[in-house]
Nucleic acid binder design. Structure first.
Lengths: 221, 221
DNA sequence: CAAAAAATTTAGGCGAATCTAAATTATTTG
DNA sequence: CAAATAATTTAGATTCGCCTAAATTTTTTG
């Protein structure tokens, strides 16, 4: 049913999946760029994935993941995000340090391992960056998230994702005591510099810059 | 300093290390047998490992791990056993189920991951099979272990290792409530069939077969 | 100790994944 | 809309790890 896949094949599948998410159309060059490889290598791999019916592909005409391919992609994303959750919540990594390690861990093959890890972690729904973790059927929560800049005044909202994974952002958010799951509301918006006066939970209000606000995504209750 | 190693190279290093433990002399054929490969492939790999100064090798004359090679081997063994400990203690795997998964996990490269995992697990000294876990310097506890058949009568001793990792053995030990760390003593030895009457902790005495006894290794306080 | 057996290495080849350079097809634009 | 440009694919090579078959060296043994 599920063909055996090498780590390289899995990386292509995951990359195509993610590129499809942001813009339905994916090109050979896009994939090459993301994977730090050359367009010629992508062509080679597309032929292989086509033979395994993981992508629909006609040369020079483009390609998309098959249903089969989508399922595989979701399984890989599931593993990646569960491991990220493990690394941050159990091993005390910072969220900016876990991506590369999870990139390796996601290729461990045991299905039982994934399910036991999921149980051990308490079936988390979101990873440390606020991205949803697919369940074993590939279902995941849709996040109706909006940028903090678009949140109405005095509307209580929960931080659910961040726009980047840089160390600098993490440092600032840690200092401000903001993390995924923090509830906040905006008291005032200053149009001059687009800074915001906000309060989190029951603490005193403080001000955040426009640059910080664009990096935060929230969901209304 | 440490050359980059592929998973295949690491597997050869670990195998040579283990074979050296039991019998100082290791042959090309031994390695081929352990790795389910052919002698010709081992020769190929030996040339590569020799070029990287991981083994000392002269053709037709034999080979051994260099100091460098030993260090690498110990680092791999450390990772393997820490992951086994994690799988059994945290994810509730049976000890007979974890070997193959740990075989994959041991090739994850991050050094800081290993140290954080070690902390998270509480710096365990022995893995679920009773084998010692090297520390980050490659040091590990020597186990002065003897076979249960050689334990003197009425001498209290701790189960520290098992001779096989079969499901059948695990099933029996679970039923008998014996595991790594269990304290026991022998009350009587029957020379007819080499069965033993033993007691664990403060429970009533019971009898175990010779076959079971040879599979158990204990250490005297 | 010489011939047979066993162990080891070399030679040559294969599939996976990558690359560069050249060829082909699609797209853009004057 | 034809020529230039961009995107994509093919051709041919390379490295890694493995294979089989043949050659070589070591070890065993009659």
């Amino acid at each position: 049913m599920i063909p055996h896949l090498t780590a390289a094949e899995e990386n292509y599948i995951k990359t195509i999946f993610h590129l499809q998410q942001v813009d339905g159309n994916v090109s050979t060059n896009d994939v090459a760029l993301k994977l730090n490889t050359k367009a010629a290598s992508v062509s080679d791999m597309l032929k292989k994935l086509n033979a395994k019916e993981i992508v629909h592909y006609e040369k020079y005409k483009g390609f998309t993941l098959s249903n089969q391919g989508q399922k595989i992609a979701l399984a890989i994303v599931r593993k990646h995000r569960l491991w990220e959750y493990f690394l941050v919540e159990k091993l005390q990594f910072g969220w900016d340090e876990v991506h590369d390690i999870a990139e390796e861990l996601e290729h461990i093959t045991s299905r039982v391992l994934v399910e036991k890890l999921d149980s051990f972690l308490g079936h988390p729904k979101f990873d440390p960056h606020g991205d949803p973790i697919p369940d074993s059927n590939g279902e995941m929560e849709k996040m109706e998230q909006i940028n903090l800049l678009d949140l109405p005044l005095n509307q209580l909202a929960e931080v659910v994702a961040v726009g980047s994974q840089s160390t600098e952002l993490l440092e600032l958010l840690t200092h401000r005591q903001i993390k995924i799951g923090t509830w906040l509301s905006i008291h005032k918006k200053f149009s001059f510099d687009h800074s915001l006066e906000i309060s989190i939970q029951s603490s005193p209000t403080f001000t955040i810059s426009q640059q910080l606000a664009v990096a935060l995504f929230v969901r209304i209750k």
